Simulated assay, not measured.
Amino acid sequence: MSRSTPAAPTDRTPVRRRIRGLDADERSAQRRRQLLTAATELFARQSYSLTSIEQICQHAYVGTKGFYDHFESKEACYTALLVQISTGIQQRVTEVALETADSDWPTRRAAVVAAFVHAIADDPRLAKVTFGEAGGISPAVEAQRRVNRRWSAEFLKHQWLQDGSPDDPALLPLALATIGGMFELVADWLHHHDDGGAPDSVDTLVADLQHFVTIVDAGRAAIR
């Protein structure tokens, strides 16, 4: 009896289907970007509380299922957006601090404060999303805001140490208070716009923050 020849092995590795030049992972990442962009626009324009998941999906041209593939709730979407914006701010001020590392502290301070302001205020939507309504959304969002504030305080403390401050236990609480004051000045700048006041320029906000941190630096000398 003749034996049949075994079939040649075949490569059963699934082919990654590409649509418009993107594979599944790339399409998923694109949908996530579209959702976050839409959320930025809507949260800034009409607030977090008045924005629905359905509106975000319609604005992003992404189905509701696509939304839940990335975020379990509107709160999770907002938190992801807050992380994205904060990461961009942190990268920008870190780059400027490195670029001016050989400068004296007043020069470095001016550059870092200006970088911070332009990172959030050149596109006013970012400032509104980050410093506008964020404080009253949820405990999870507040926890993320505290993470961001702590990072900023640690960053400022490091800059002060480079300026010759001793690593005193009081330095981090002072940095936290300074960052809190800076964030409050940004929030006040935003509310002034929203309340119909005469619009202050970005340069005005830069000058106000510079003045505030300069005053803090004068007091910081007391713990040297």
Results as ranks from 00 to 15, higher is better:
Val206Asp: 06
Val141Ala: 10
Asp168Val: 03
Asp163Gly: 01
Asp203Met: 05
Asp123Val: 05
Ala97Gly: 08
Arg150Lys: 14
Ala207Thr: 11
Glu133Ser: 07
Leu161Ile: 06
Thr107Gly: 12
Val62Ala: 05
Arg108Gly: 02
Phe155Leu: 05
Val147Trp: 13
Thr64Gly: 09
His211Phe: 14
Leu185Thr: 14
Val117Ile: 11
Glu133Tyr: 09
Ala76Asp: 11
Leu36Ala: 02
Arg149Lys: 10
Asp23Ile: 14
Thr13Pro: 01
Glu41Cys: 15
Trp189Ile: 03
His158Lys: 02
Arg27Gly: 12
Leu171Phe: 13
Val129Tyr: 02
Ser49Val: 06
Tyr61Phe: 11
Ala114Glu: 13
Arg92Phe: 00
Glu26Cys: 08
Ser201Gly: 10
Ala24Cys: 10
Thr178Lys: 02
Cys57Trp: 05
Thr178Tyr: 01
Asp217Ile: 04
Asp102Thr: 09
Ala7Phe: 10
Asn148Phe: 07
Thr100Ala: 03
Ile137Trp: 03
Gln46Asp: 07
Ile56Gly: 00
Phe183Asn: 12
Ala127Asp: 04
Phe116Trp: 09
Gly88His: 12
Phe71Ser: 04
Gln84Gly: 04
Ala76Asn: 03
Pro9Gly: 08
His59Tyr: 11
Leu81Asp: 04
Ala198Phe: 07
Gly132Ala: 04
Phe155Gly: 01
His118Ser: 03
Leu22Ser: 12
Arg20Asp: 15
His193Pro: 02
Ile19Trp: 09
Gly197Ser: 06
Ser49Thr: 14
Arg20Ile: 01
Ala60Pro: 07
Gln30Met: 15
Trp189Leu: 04
Leu171Trp: 15
Gly88Ala: 09
Val186Gly: 02
Arg149Cys: 02
Ala24Asp: 13
Arg145Cys: 07
Leu98Cys: 10
His191Ala: 08
Leu209Pro: 00
Ala80Thr: 14
Val96Tyr: 00
Glu72Gly: 15
Leu82Glu: 01
Glu99Gln: 15
Val129Cys: 05
Pro173Ala: 12
Gln90Ser: 15
Phe116Arg: 08
Trp151Lys: 02
Phe71Cys: 05
Arg17Val: 11
Ala187Pro: 00
Asp163Met: 00
Ser138Leu: 13
Arg18Tyr: 11
Gln46Ala: 04
Gln34Glu: 06
Asp167Arg: 01
Met182Asp: 01
Pro6Cys: 06
Gly197Glu: 06
Ser73Trp: 14
Gln30Cys: 10
His70Phe: 08
Gly181Ser: 10
Ala38Ser: 14
Asp122Met: 04
Thr40Ala: 06
Ala134Ile: 04
Arg92Lys: 14
Ala39Asp: 07
Asp194Leu: 13
Asp123Thr: 13
Trp160Glu: 00
Ser2Arg: 09
Val113Phe: 02
Ala140His: 15
His158Cys: 00
Val96Pro: 04
Ala110His: 13
Leu35Ala: 06
Lys74Pro: 08
Ala121Gly: 05
Glu75Cys: 07
Met182Arg: 13
Phe131Cys: 03
Tyr78Val: 07
Asp69Met: 13
Asp203Ser: 10
Gly88Glu: 05
His59Ser: 15
Ile53Tyr: 06
Glu133Lys: 02
Ala44Gln: 15
Glu72Pro: 10
Val216Cys: 08
Arg18Trp: 08
Met182Trp: 00
Ser4Ile: 11
Leu22Trp: 13
Gly136Met: 10
Asp194Arg: 11
Asp102Cys: 02
